[in-house]
């Protein structure tokens, strides 16, 4: 098993190098003066300029520059934000919990609704529940979520007044220091009455919006995985054994279908982060997605560079975990390696 994990990690090294190279080239390919791009300072004296060139190592050959960049990365130095003059690492990890909280609730909603929907559609294949569920799933899959978010705000916040328009907490009535960065957890830790409710209240619309596309994908994939599994011989065996239908479908079929579905859920993390950019923008959610957009519009290139690098590494990490989980959930792979 340990060997299995190591071999999986080894496979990621070329991709990792490729990503860092892409991030490195990103700044160099930008039109304009690299000093300005990296420091954000304009119209500076020649002296200051020379200082900068030495600081960023721009006088050295590109290949040397890349390796020193790589060395910095491995030491945890991802550059400095131009707008705040703080390390990109700090900025990123400060905002990551907000995005993770949102993504967690989104994937929770997506799984809790998507998986049962897929099962029902497969079992009722070709009949109206199948058509209704799969029609909805395709609509969800085709949804421009930025519009969907606006629509929900219009309905639930502006018209009905049920949910707040933006933010993570009712900051007029509650205040507490962040401990974990997860608002729901912090609210619970603070012990203030109603704080958790307020946090969830703020979470509900953004996470519903963000869950839309993963939910649709999960429902569709669960259906097709279930259809495939339901035709297998061992399902016939389970019926021949006299098991009740719910047990055949809910345990024997689902356990096998889950092997595929877990992979699909894992692959949604990329979609989720891309979706977070849009969702966070609409709901003014202070996560990494909104931070990236702000960085792009402020031309804070070191931040964009670092952010892209972090996010792709995060996606790689999640994919690795999914890969390993696949081995853990599928007995055939588990001891094949």
């Amino acid at each position: 098993m340990f060997k299995f994990i190591l071999s999986k990690i080894a496979l990621l090294i070329p991709t990792f190098l490729g990503i860092t190279l892409a991030a490195f080239l990103f700044v160099r390919l930008l039109p304009g003066d690299p000093v300005t791009i990296l420091s954000g300072e304009r119209g500076i004296s020649d002296e200051r300029r020379a200082e900068m060139i030495a600081q960023f190592g721009l006088d050295k050959p590109v290949i040397v520059q890349y390796f020193s960049y790589l060395k910095n990365l491995l030491q945890g130095d991802f550059g400095q934000s131009i707008s705040t003059h703080r390390p990109v690492v700090e900025e990123f990890f400060e905002r990551l919990p907000a995005t993770m909280e949102l993504a967690f609730f989104a994937i929770l909603i997506a799984v809790l609704i998507g998986v049962p929907a897929g099962i029902i559609a497969a079992v009722k294949r070709g009949r109206w529940p199948d058509h209704v569920l799969m029609g909805s799933a395709l609509t969800g899959y085709s949804m421009p979520i930025f519009w969907w978010g606006l629509l929900l705000i219009m309905l639930f916040s502006t018209t009905l007044g049920w949910t707040p328009v933006s933010g993570r907490l009712d900051i007029i009535n509650y205040y507490f220091e962040p401990v974990t960065g997860f608002m729901t957890v912090d609210a619970w830790l603070s012990g203030q009455e109603g704080a958790v409710k307020s946090a969830l209240h703020h979470l509900i619309l953004p996470s519903v919006v963000l869950s839309t596309i993963p939910m649709a994908v999960i429902a569709r994939q669960t259906r097709s995985a279930m259809l495939e599994v339901l035709g297998e011989d061992y399902i016939r065996t389970a019926y021949a054994k006299g098991l009740p239908t719910w047990r055949v479908i809910g345990i024997h079929a689902l356990r096998n279908a889950m092997i595929t579905v877990v992979t699909v859920i894992g692959l949604q993390v990329g979609t989720l982060i891309a979706g977070a950019v849009l969702t966070e923008t609409i709901f003014s959610w202070p996560g990494v997605g909104k931070w990236m957009i702000d960085a792009i519009s402020h031309r804070d290139y070191p931040a964009v560079q670092g952010g892209l690098l972090f996010i792709s590494m995060l996606v790689m990490l999640v994919n690795l975990i999914v890969d390993l989980m696949y081995g853990w959930i599928n007995p055939r792979v588990r001891d094949g390696k």
Partner: peptide, 26 residues
Amino acid sequence: KQRRKLNGGTIAMIFQEPMSSLNPCF
């Protein structure tokens, strides 16, 4: 439902392909 209960209890069946007739996950 009642008929299903006879399966495995009163009548049992074994199949041609033993390898694929057992659930790989259990």
